Amino acid sequence: MTNMQRGLAELLGTFWLVFGGCGSAVLAAAFPEVGIGLLGVSLAFGLTVLTMAYSIGHISGCHLNPAVTLGLWAGGRFPVHDVPLYVIAQLAGAIAAAGALYLIASGNADYSLATNGLAANGFGEHSPGGYTMQAALIVEVLLTFFFLLVIMGSTDARAPADHAPIAIGLMLTLIHLISIPVSNTSVNPARSTGPALIQGGWAIEQLWLFWAAPIAGALIGGLVYKALGADAKSRPDVTGDAL
C-alpha cells in the first residue's frame, strides 16, 4: 500500500472512531427515556474499532490512535519513519469528526456546546464522576498499557488468526466501562484532541493529560509485550503491524 492509501485509511478510521464513539455520547446517551447510557457508549467505541479493523486493517493496520502507533513502535512492530504520517492522519480524522458532530448536534435547538459539550475528556470538576487529576492519570496509563498488551498479543503470529479485531474491540468496550466515570475515557490522544479543539476552554487546558498518560501507558505496554513475546511478530498477512 502507498503512504497516501495508508494515511487516508487512518484518517477515515479515526473519523469513524470519534464520530461513532463521541457521537453516541453526545447524540444518544442522554436521549429522554431511551438513552443508551454508559453501556451503550462503551459498546459504540468498541464497535467502531471492530468494524474499522475488518475494513481497513489490511490497508493500514487500523491504529486509529497515536498512542497505539507509538506503542507498536516501542514494541518493535512499526517503523519510526511512518509515525508522523499516522499521527497526522489520525489527528485530521479526529478533528474532522468532532467538527461534523458539532454541526449535527447544533441542529437541535436545545443543544449548547458550553453546556452539553462534545464528550471531551476531563478531570476534577470536568470528570463525569468528579475524580481527581491523579485518578485520571493513573487510569489512563493503566488502561492504555493493557490495551497495548491486548493489541500486540492478539496480533501475534502465534495467536489464533482472524480474531484480533474482536478481542481489541471488546477490550476498548471494557476500557470505557471502567473509565468513563473517571475521565470520560481517552486512551487515545487523537480522540481527545478533536472534541477539545472544538469545545475549547477547559477541554484544551486539560488536554495535556490525555496525551501524556496514554502515550506513557502505550510505550510501557509495547516494551513489556516485546519482552514477554521475545521475537514475536505480527502475522505476515497483516499490513501496518497492528490488526
Results as ranks from 00 to 15, higher is better:
97 A>Q: 03
119 A>M: 06
20 G>D: 12
85 L>G: 04
138 I>T: 11
239 T>L: 11
190 A>Q: 09
206 Q>N: 07
200 G>I: 05
221 G>E: 04
168 I>V: 11
6 R>K: 15
76 G>H: 07
55 S>C: 14
160 P>N: 14
188 N>R: 05
224 V>D: 05
180 I>Y: 02
11 L>D: 04
18 V>I: 03
116 N>I: 03
202 W>I: 07
117 G>E: 03
53 A>M: 11
240 G>V: 03
195 P>I: 00
79 P>K: 09
8 L>M: 09
210 F>K: 01
219 L>E: 09
4 M>N: 14
27 L>G: 09
106 S>E: 15
127 S>F: 01
25 A>Y: 00
196 A>M: 02
88 I>P: 02
192 S>K: 08
184 N>W: 06
135 A>Q: 15
44 A>I: 04
218 A>C: 13
110 D>M: 12
193 T>P: 03
100 A>H: 12
124 G>F: 01
166 I>E: 09
179 S>A: 15
168 I>R: 04
24 S>Y: 04
225 Y>I: 00
231 D>E: 15
188 N>D: 08
41 V>D: 01
187 V>F: 07
209 L>R: 09
46 G>Q: 01
162 D>L: 14
227 A>D: 14
202 W>T: 09
216 A>V: 14
25 A>L: 02
223 L>C: 13
196 A>S: 09
17 L>T: 03
196 A>D: 04
132 T>G: 15
75 G>W: 00
140 E>N: 05
174 L>S: 06
65 N>L: 11
167 A>K: 13
48 T>R: 00
13 G>D: 02
14 T>E: 09
216 A>L: 15
150 V>G: 01
165 P>F: 08
112 S>E: 08
170 L>F: 15
198 I>W: 09
236 P>G: 13
198 I>A: 05
137 L>D: 13
184 N>Y: 05
156 D>K: 07
